[in-house]
Amino acid sequence: MIRAIWDNLKGLYSLLVGMKITLIFLFSPQKTVHYPRKTVERENLITYRGPLELTRGKTDPAVTRCISCQMCVKACPGHCLTVVKNPEKSVKAPIEWKYDFTLCCLCGACVETCPTSALAFSHRIYLVARTREELIFDLLADLKARVEETPVLPGEEGASAEAAQG
């Protein structure tokens, strides 16, 4: 009987301990990152691997390094890549590079198998689309637009650095 009372008093004390913990948290700063006002810090953002993009060419940044070897298309588990070869055999660069992000699982098989490192992950974490069609990217046009926007990358290597801002 006395033991039961003692146990219950100890139980009440444990409840007070819990209430103290929540009271401390009530007055301690919040952890939330308010998205439109604040964003995740950059060093955390650039480790995110978002939708694919074509890397800049070595000589002319607006020309892709892709040689239409179709290795990525074969490796892709989701069949989300379409690379159309140039009908003229002499030109290796593709005429069309379609990427269906709705099917992509971001596994990286294409990036790892590419013999010329023409593919890379972007860091577009805040990607938004209203329709399904908006998520089917034309990567050649995307590359051209990026090069026009920033012809020379500010110090950083890899075409993906700038996409983190945009």
Binding site: N8, K10, G11, L12, S14, L15, V17, G18, K20, I21, T22
Partner: peptide, 15 residues
Amino acid sequence: KMYTGLVTDNVIFRR
């Protein structure tokens, strides 16, 4: 340690 105080030692939780 905080988990212990908030949940593990809580008498309601244990019972």
